[in-house]
Design a protein around this nucleic acid. Sequence first.
DNA 1: TCTGATGCATAAGATTATTATGTTTGAACC
DNA 2: GGTTCAAACATAATAATCTTATGCATCAGA
Lengths: 112, 112
Amino acid sequence: MNHSPELLKGTLQTIVLKVLADYGKMYGYELVQRVRQLSANTITLTEGALYPTLHRMEKNGLLKTEVVMVGKRMRKYYRITPAGKEAVDVKIDNFVSFIRTMSAVLSLKAWV
Amino acid sequence: MNHSPELLKGTLQTIVLKVLADYGKMYGYELVQRVRQLSANTITLTEGALYPTLHRMEKNGLLKTEVVMVGKRMRKYYRITPAGKEAVDVKIDNFVSFIRTMSAVLSLKAWV
DNA sequence: TCTGATGCATAAGATTATTATGTTTGAACC
DNA sequence: GGTTCAAACATAATAATCTTATGCATCAGA
C-alpha cells in the first residue's frame, strides 16, 4: 500500500473482505487492480502483504478458494464465506468507531 | 492503545502532536489521561509505546522538553516546536485523506 | 504500613507491513 | 524470432510499530 503506509496497517483484511463481499469471487491480482481503482490510485496492495494475508484468511475460514486454469496459467479465486461476512460487518463497525474516536481527538469535522 | 490496536498504528505521533498543539506543554503521564478523556476511554496510550515515541519525536525536532521536579519526583514536560506544528498539519491532512479513501473503498457514508 | 496512583524508562515479543527475489505464461511489437 | 512488459502466483529478509512485562522511585490515603 502506498497511501501513508502506517495508517493502512490493519485495514488490509477489511478491504479484502469488503471487496469480495461486493464483487463476488476475485483472484489476487484482480484484487490489486480493483482496490487501486476504488481508491483512485492511492492504495496499491503489495503482493508481499496480500498473498500471505489471503492464505491466513482462508486458514481462518473467512475465505474459500477455487483454482482455475486459464490456458497454462493458474488463477486462484477467493470467495467470502458466511464467517467472512460476519467478520466484515464487525470490522467495518470497528473502523467507523475508530474514525469517530479519532475525529474527536483530532477535532475533525463531524462524521455523519 | 486498546481501541482496535492495529488501526491505531501510525496515529500515535499525530495524536501526541495534536494534543500538545491544543493544550501546550504536557508530560507523558498527563498525555495518557488527556487522550483517554478525549477519546471517551477508548484510547489508552501504553507507556511502552508512548515514551519511546516521545523520545524519537524530540530527537527529530518535533518536540522539546523541560524537566521539572515536583517534590522529589521528575516530570518531563513536552512542548511542540515550530517543526512539530508543520508536521501535525501534514499528518492530519494525511489522516483525513486516508479516511476519505477508505470511505470510498468501504462504501461508508460521505465524509464532509 | 500497605496499597494504589503517579511518573519515568527499557527490553522482549508479536504483528503486519515493505522490499526484494523468484518462477512461469502470454501478448505485443519490431 | 527475440525482447519487453503485463499477468499471476509465491516466499524470505527486513523494518516499523505496537503490546506486554518488568523495573524503579515517590507520594497520598486508609
